[in-house]
Amino acid sequence: MKRSYDALVIGAGAAGMMCAARAAQRGRRVLIVDHATSLAEKIRISGGGRCNFTNRTVNASHFLSQNPHFCRSALARYGAQHFVSLVERHGIRYHEKTLGQLFCDDSSQQIIDMLLSECSDGQVDWAAPVKVEVVSREADGRFIVRTDHGQFDTGALVVATGGLSIPKIGATDLGYRIARQFALPVVAPRPALVPLTLDSETLAALAPLAGAAFDVVASCADGEFRERALVTHRGLSGPAILQISSYWQRACGDGRPEPVRLNLLPDHDAAAWVAQHADSNALLGNLLGEVLPNRFAKAWAELHGWNTPLRQTSAKTRQAIAEALGNWSLAPSGTQGFSKAEVTLGGVDTRALSSKTMAALKVPGLYFIGEVVDVTGHLGGYNFQWAWSSAVAAGEAL
């Protein structure tokens, strides 16, 4: 026996629950289908368990997409201030960290509970955990969703299945398969906000320094971020590296791989700093230890063959040292993959969707929201805000 709904949402994560709640509170009969035994795991583990649920400042410049203007409409109509108002209405205490990032004071579970409460207020129905086996569209335009626990039909189908990041908590490619089934193009998914790996020669010198952290300005293509970088046993991580990884991945995907460049002295003019110490008898590694973590400073100088007193180096070498300190060029060998990625770069091509409603332009009644879409935010609450904004855009249209 089929059960009929006005709207069916596949995926009970941030975007899925937000969309279902908004549509149901508008009087629609809504069902959420999800395969997970524990709902919204990505919310639960985010922000160290406190959920960086949005950012004080959100605009289109904080997102990557093949169509950089696509996200403007949804963000303008449901922005950070709207979600903050919802959080406050539910009595959730929160605080601001660096760069406008907003976190729960207590637990990310509060955001999950808030979304569940919003769904309950709209009398959303649930089918979880169930596995979606087949999705089809009838001649009358309604969708049939067959699961291992029954079959449902719906006038509108919302795909909120997320991307491929963090497969251990249940990420799958279901959303992309549904898109392709209905002839929607998909921008090749890549790991984003992900640690970078380095070649064996560089890694041999730096791997023993795993744990060393320092401020940098990281840049690649048209991206630039000043935050912390971290040496790991496989390469580089830390907020600055996670941020720039998305830009590096995009450049690689466009067939124009570029190096990642690190300014190791963001508070100094590197040439002036080298000139200031040009007559020093101290080893370069020891001098750099005054402005960088000591172990890292010595290893970096050794890596370049420059761990000698600056006064014993030529003007040409000092120039090279200054250039490397202000613009250290690294060619990553890859990333640590989806298992370590916070989000997915790429997804359902926005050229096939309405920026106002998130509906497929050529398949009436089919919607895609959240991470499954080719809109990827910076680190700092932006990807959750895209989930909320795109979900409301679809929820208001259902």
Rank of each mutant, 00 (worst) to 15 (best):
A221H: 12
L206M: 15
Q312G: 13
P266W: 02
S329G: 02
A204W: 06
A171E: 04
F63W: 05
R234A: 13
L39N: 03
A359K: 01
V348D: 09
A387K: 02
A15Y: 08
R311G: 00
V87K: 06
T232P: 09
L262K: 03
N55K: 07
S65M: 03
R226N: 02
V30N: 04
Q81C: 06
V187E: 11
I144E: 10
K340S: 13
F143D: 10
T313I: 00
P239I: 01
N59W: 00
Q243D: 13
V30E: 06
N307R: 02
S38D: 12
R351M: 04
S245N: 09
S237L: 05
L39R: 10
T57G: 06
V9Q: 06
V84Q: 15
Y94H: 15
G155R: 13
I369A: 03
S107H: 14
C220D: 01
E41W: 04
V84Y: 01
T172P: 00
G238A: 07
D125E: 15
Y78V: 02
G380Q: 05
V124E: 08
F338G: 05
Q276E: 15
Q66M: 07
D140N: 15
L209P: 05
R190K: 13
D215E: 13
R190D: 02
L379I: 12
S200T: 11
A299T: 12
A397L: 04
I43G: 02
L288P: 06
V9C: 11
A207Y: 00
W306H: 15
R318P: 05
V84W: 03
S314D: 07
G337H: 10
S200D: 15
Q81I: 03
L379V: 11
E396A: 15
E302Q: 14
H62I: 00
C71H: 02
D254K: 12
R26P: 02
V375F: 06
Q312S: 13
R228V: 04
V9M: 06
G170V: 02
E96G: 02
K298I: 15
A205E: 08
E302M: 11
R146V: 12
G155T: 03
Q312P: 00
P185I: 07
G13I: 01
I92G: 05
D34M: 10
P364L: 10
I92F: 01
G16M: 09
Q249I: 05
Y78T: 05
Y94E: 05
C252G: 01
Y247R: 14
L198S: 03
H304E: 11
V348T: 06
D106N: 13
R250I: 00
H304V: 00
R256P: 01
D269S: 13
A40V: 10
L262Q: 01
A23D: 05
Q181H: 09
P185E: 09
G337R: 08
I111S: 04
I10E: 07
E290C: 11
T98P: 00
A397V: 08
S280R: 11
S136W: 05
V145M: 06
I112K: 13
L287Y: 03
G377E: 06
A212S: 14
P185R: 13
M18Q: 11
L164F: 09
A40L: 07
G91I: 10
D121W: 07
S61L: 07
W300H: 13
A270E: 10
S245C: 08
I92L: 11
L287A: 06
F143L: 04
L283A: 14
T335F: 00
A322S: 14
